[in-house]
Design a protein around this nucleic acid. Structure first.
Lengths: 234, 234
DNA sequence: CAAGCGTGTTACGATCTCGTCGCATAGGAG
DNA sequence: CTCCTATGCGACGAGATCGTAACACGCTTG
């Protein structure tokens, strides 16, 4: 179902958690070394990371920070495992953007429930090689978009932007969401960069029924349905 | 910001939690008797319930079950407070639909964080949901309202206002309530701002059976039923 | 080095949103 | 009926928000 990266130095825990996860149909990767987390996360790009805060050598909070700092792992939800006493770390974890945490000792069943909740919460977007909405066919391999058979080449930035928009058509993607998805984390509120790329995309898309709509103060969306214009009479 | 119902028999905890919640701008109601929770929840319809599992007389899990069984309280998220030992109850709580839980003793700060998380989470769910009353379909995702299939785009302010009105149709929303819900706290008694936005909404709604009614000196309401004459008797 | 391309930034104008004002109007009390 | 108050409503302007063109910078290619 989902791929989950378990980070813990105690092999007992890893085995136990892995067993339960696999029993629910999840795919499991594991790491016992804090320094190896980021590379492994980049390599396997899991849907969720279960991270023990108490790791030998490097602090779990540090690991978490690194995960958050890297564009490639920033979006991955993290569930933290903390010892009972580490209240400060727990709070730091939640504030730092952890999606949930659990105090040890915990029951596997409880962890499963929390994992299920987090996975449900974070709507996972599956990246397919091709994405089709009506006449729009986005081909990530060729970095191109064919509209009614006509081929339009996209740059890498435009591709990312279009991918994000088409992943959830008819859904508002806020500026910060788009900035985060395409450029990595940024709340660059007063920059016209996003607008500029939206315009460049719009220019390339041409004037068809489906287009990129603006919702003021909310964001942009790719409209899968042709909206009726009120310019019926000439 | 939000209305929160705190259920606990220990007045110390209630006071502490209330204090912190109010400091963050939340409105707080409290109950110390498990049997009174459901009526109170129905009456005040809070955005969130903080429920102690250990209550005199009635089991907290039972209370939770009753809340879930009632249509009027079913959607309200619940954060449970449990003693450390009650692991079974904790799991029962999560499985039963509690949105989160916290083991006593807890730090107020931690509770605040969890409350914030749950509110953010449920708010997102609400944002994704559509609200339908008769032919009126309020789509929060697209900031639009479709009436008999016709799509009307709303601004942020109009959306908030319409959301508040449609959340409880046929219920009078006082001026101060609407001002508070849409603009944040305000006792702007002699301003025409609210009227103006009500008018703008009315214009966009068009002339259908359902409309926004005025109750002089009392407030506004969204009428779910076509009303020919006002025969309000007291 | 020159040319082309992708990208981010800046500047500026266009458009939209929203609160306020002034006055019109309606509805109830006496 | 008259008066008084609450609400309805059009218009206006400040500020927010967005679209667009032009430019600057870095990188690659020849």
């Amino acid at each position: 179902m989902s791929k989950i990266l378990v980070v813990d130095d105690e092999s007992d825990i890893v085995d136990l958690v892995s067993l339960h996860l696999q029993r629910e149909g999840h795919e499991v990767e594991s790491v016992d070394n804090g320094l190896a987390v980021l590379p492994m996360a980049v390599k396997t790009s899991p849907d969720l990371i279960v991270l023990d805060l108490m790791l030998p050598g490097i602090d779990g909070v540090q690991v978490h920070r690194r995960l958050r700092a890297d564009t490639r792992t920033r979006h991955i939800p993290v569930i933290m495992l903390t010892a009972r006493a580490q209240t400060n770390d727990r709070i730091a974890g939640l504030e730092g953007g952890a999606d949930d945490y659990l105090t040890k000792p915990f029951s596997p069943r409880e962890l499963m429930l929390r994992i299920g909740a987090v996975l449900r919460r974070t709507q996972k977007v599956v990246m397919l090689a091709e994405q089709r909405i009506g006449d729009f066919l986005l081909d990530r391999r060729n970095m191109s978009l064919s509209i009614c058979g006509k081929l339009v080449e996209l740059t890498i930035t435009e591709l990312k932007l279009m991918t994000t928009l088409m992943a959830n058509p008819d859904v508002i993607h806020s500026r910060s969401e788009l900035l985060s998805a395409v450029w990595g984390y940024a709340d660059d509120t007063h920059s016209r960069t996003l607008d500029t790329h939206i315009k460049r995309l719009r220019d390339k898309l041409g004037d068809h029924g489906r287009h990129i709509g603006t919702l003021r103060r909310q964001g942009y969306l790719f409209q899968s349905v042709v909206q009726e214009e009120e310019t019926a009479d000439a």
